[in-house]
């Protein structure tokens, strides 16, 4: 163990947390939708880092592959097709401010409540590990214990693809 590597690791962890938080903030606060998507992507990269710290490199990579590679790209594609930038506020400024205040209040309350729960909760001590959490273990569980949800998810994905195709196609027909 090289001395000081602790600081290094903590620094990296801090960076990852900052990425997550910054990404999330960019995603919800930016008025340009394309920046929001970039924020989401940043947030997902940060999350992937967190997963890595949580002992699951597999999920970290899956997070990037699915969220950045698929979800964000799809959203950008949607953005390109429909170009939705946030409209100019049409309502009165006071109402605008009111809505903003309400949203802030609600979210702050939720954050405070949940964070408090998380910090104060008396979590039982971890039990002795059963599996090793590796890719192999995940694969085996998916095909044994969780085979029904796995099949269901596959079905949901299939239906989603078909549904997406139908909807998008139908939309074109009405032009």
């Amino acid at each position: 163990m090289i001395p000081g590597s602790d600081y290094l690791v903590t620094g990296i962890f801090g960076l990852i947390v900052a990425t997550t938080v910054g990404g999330a903030l960019l995603a919800v606060l930016s008025t340009r939708i394309i920046r929001s998507v970039t924020g989401l992507a940043m947030c997902c990269v940060g999350l992937a880092g967190l997963y890595y710290f949580l002992n699951s490199p597999f999920l970290a990579l899956m997070e990037i592959l699915i969220y950045v590679g698929a979800v964000c790209v799809t959203i950008i594609f949607g953005v390109m097709l429909s170009e939705p930038d946030e409209p100019e506020p049409q309502e009165k400024r006071s109402r605008e401010a009111l809505w903003g205040g309400v949203a802030l209040l609600v979210s702050a309350a939720i954050f405070w409540g949940v964070a408090r729960l998380g910090l104060q909760g008396r979590w039982p001590a971890p039990a002795a590990p059963v599996g090793d959490g590796s890719v192999q273990a995940i694969g085996i569980s998916l095909l044994t214990t969780y085979s029904l949800p796995f099949e269901l998810i596959s079905l949901v994905l299939l239906v989603a693809i078909l549904g997406a195709l139908t909807i998008a196609h139908g939309g074109r027909g009405k032009e």
Partner: peptide, 13 residues
Amino acid sequence: LVLAAFLLAAGIY
């Protein structure tokens, strides 16, 4: 957990 709470709050906002 706090981070998750933050993400949730941000999402709801």
